[in-house]
Simulated scan of single mutants.
Amino acid sequence: MNIQQQSGQTPMKFAQPPAILSTKDFLYIEDILSWNLEIIKKANAYASLCQDQDVIQAMNRTCQLHMRHYQSILNHLGKHVQATTMAGGMAQ
């Protein structure tokens, strides 16, 4: 018997996200992308100023991590735009 059954609770059901982005959503995504770019720039700058190879490697790993995050966000947005465009084109 799991915890939900013991407490008498039913599993939570999640609503589907809206099909369009609000202005607030767009601004938040823009902020996330900007933060990642800023971290990439700073980590590159710090790596170029350092002499310690361990610090340089850590800064390079930081750059790679945030570049992957940035690209992942762009890929996700691109898939959403492509799916929306294809669905809109079919409706015409």
Results as ranks from 00 to 15, higher is better:
Q16R: 07
P17L: 02
P17T: 00
P17N: 00
P18F: 03
A19H: 03
A19S: 09
A19I: 06
I20A: 12
L21K: 03
S22F: 10
K24H: 13
K24I: 15
L27Q: 04
I29S: 03
I29N: 02
D31C: 14
I32L: 01
I32F: 10
L33I: 11
L33T: 11
S34R: 11
S34T: 15
W35Q: 13
N36P: 02
N36W: 03
N36T: 01
N36G: 07
L37H: 06
L37E: 09
L37V: 03
E38K: 09
I39C: 09
I39G: 06
I40N: 04
K41D: 08
K42L: 08
K42I: 01
A43L: 04
A43T: 02
A45M: 05
A45D: 05
A45R: 05
A45H: 06
Y46D: 03
Y46C: 04
Y46H: 09
L49A: 15
C50W: 02
Q51Y: 14
D52F: 06
D52M: 03
Q53N: 12
V55K: 01
V55R: 01
I56Q: 11
I56M: 12
I56S: 06
Q57V: 10
Q57T: 11
A58F: 07
A58M: 08
M59Q: 09
M59P: 05
N60S: 04
N60V: 01
R61C: 08
T62Q: 05
T62P: 07
L65R: 13
H66M: 02
M67C: 03
M67A: 13
M67Q: 12
M67S: 11
M67N: 09
R68L: 01
R68W: 00
H69N: 10
Q71I: 06
S72P: 07
S72I: 00
I73V: 06
I73D: 01
I73K: 08
I73F: 12
L74R: 09
N75M: 14
N75W: 10
H76K: 14
H76E: 13
H76I: 10
L77R: 07
L77F: 08
G78W: 01
G78N: 02
K79C: 13
